[in-house]
Design a protein around this nucleic acid. Structure first.
Length: 412
RNA sequence: CGGGGAGUAGCGCAGUUGGUAGCGCACGCGGUUUGGGACCGCGGGGUCGCAAGUUCGAAUCUUGUCUCCCCGACCA
């Protein structure tokens, strides 16, 4: 990407109505645009990060044999009435509207009911089970108050996955596979070391659901961590969990965290509500066992922006940075930079080429703000030395290296 | 939804005994510059959130309304 072709521009100062660090940095650097409270547009740089996060999640869900689909944002009132959750008293985040003929429709805040409804068409026999599906969807939730930048919006992207099983053991086995897949996912996203599986409320079938909580000052949750046993408990179920798990409160350390995932074992409750039954080997009808598994994609991006930044700007982890290399052109050296740019492209190394007609200082400042992991400078000076200037975003000193060394460095 | 704060140019801000709006950044033109956000000159851009009201006159006073932010509550 040639930066001169990018329509966004960086800001020296963040808009006054943004207090959340993630939104301040992402807006200043040109990753997102705020449409209204709790609703953000994703710009070219932001899309790159978002797609990388999605791709990592996609790959890990595929590993556990889940199949990708896309459901609809418009939802059918009748489907939700089956579970009783069309009611505004039961669900206070509904966005609702009407078709021109007066028919009520809702905007999806989750897809549990619709997916169960849909799967009735495809699951009749034990032979059709197990099955797991997932999607990346924009969820709409009419929150009373949006906050924390892109970490808690009224519109956000979530990966939601649903699995259907013939019996509780099969679901339990899959549930464990999901946990492992989530752990691999958070590792690859660069937040694995700070992310804890946490006992939380909300299990319909089991006593607890499990959240994945990432240490983050901007988070909204507090978990209690037992470092020795590596067990974490959400504050909301602290007393119950201490009792259930035989923990001593004095061994637990409270930590501020942000929820980046939540998985549920619903047992057969929802299938019974919605009427999802299958025929077993004996020819009898049974409700399917359901698991539900979410990862907040845009929230993960916010958490990472929040966690990995310094006084100069964003510091993206390698795997989700919008590019690997930020190539700074200083002076009249376009041809030489173009040559290196093409080599990087051919090597499959995503590069942002700062070919703008600006002073070096501004380019360096933007390189830092945008947070690309590797910075390479080409200037008359470096060309004279027959070298390239290299700097890692996370280090303060730069060094002169030759081209083979650069490619070796980038191949890791 | 309760409490608090704020809406003036794309962004950050100034502008009270009420007198017709200004600064920095950004933007356009010219020139000098060119390795960590340059400098000089000239220039464009604002229904002062919106609507009523008071007044000869309102960014400024009154009322209403919309929006945004923070704390709390809420959060499958």
């Amino acid at each position: 990407m040639r930066l001169s072709h990018n329509f966004t521009k960086t800001l020296r100062e963040a808009p006054a109505d943004e207090v959340a660090l993630n939104a301040q940095l992402l807006i200043r650097a040109g990753f997102v645009y705020k449409e209204m409270a709790g609703a953000y547009a994703y710009l070219p740089l932001g899309i790159r990060v978002l797609e990388k996060i999605k791709q990592i999640v996609r790959e890990e869900m595929n590993v556990i044999d889940s199949q990708e689909i896309i459901m609809t944002s418009l939802q059918n009132k009748a489907v939700w009435e089956k579970s009783g959750r069309w009611s505004d008293e039961k669900v206070d985040v509904w966005f609702k509207s009407k078709l021109q003929d007066g028919t009520d429709v809702g905007f999806g805040w989750t897809h549990e009911e619709p997916i169960i409804e849909m799967m009735q068409q495809y699951i009749q026999s034990y032979k059709d089970l197990p099955v797991s599906v997932y999607q990346f969807q924009t969820k709409m939730r009419n929150e009373l108050r949006a906050k924390s930048g892109i970490m808690r919006g009224r519109e956000f992207i979530m990966k939601d996955m649903y699995s259907f099983h013939a019996n509780t053991e099969d679901l339990a086995g899959y549930y464990d596979k999901v946990i492992q897949a989530y752990e691999r996912t958070y590792d690859r996203l660069g937040i694995g070391d700070d992310t804890y599986m946490t006992f939380a409320s909300g299990g319909a079938f089991t006593k607890f659901s499990h959240e994945f909580q990432t240490i983050c000052d901007a988070g909204e949750d507090v978990i209690y961590l037992h470092r020795g046993k590596n067990i974490a408990v959400n504050e909301e179920v602290l007393d119950e969990a201490i009792e259930e798990l035989g923990l001593d409160k004095k061994d637990l350390e409270p930590i501020k965290t942000a929820e980046v995932g939540n998985i549920f074992n619903f047992g057969t409750q929802k299938s019974e509500e919605m009427g999802l039954y299958f025929t077993d080997q004996a020819g009898t009808q049974n409700p399917a066992y359901l698991g539900s598994y979410g990862i907040g994609i845009t929230r993960v991006m916010g958490v990472i922006a929040e966690k990995f930044s310094d006084e100069h700007g964003l510091v993206w982890p390698n795997n989700i940075a919008p590019a690997r290399v930020y190539l700074v052109q200083i002076g009249d050296v376009e041809n030489q930079v173009n040559e290196l740019y093409n080599k990087l492209q051919q090597a499959g190394i995503e590069t942002i080429w700062d070919d703008r007609d600006m002073r070096p200082g501004e380019k360096f400042a933007d390189a830092d703000l945008i947070g690309i992991p590797h910075r390479v400078v080409v200037s008359p000076k470096t060309l004279e030395a027959g070298k390239l200037e290299y700097k890692s975003r996370s280090k303060s000193e730069s060094q002169l290296i030759d081209e083979p060394t650069l490619f070796k460095l980038l191949s890791v």
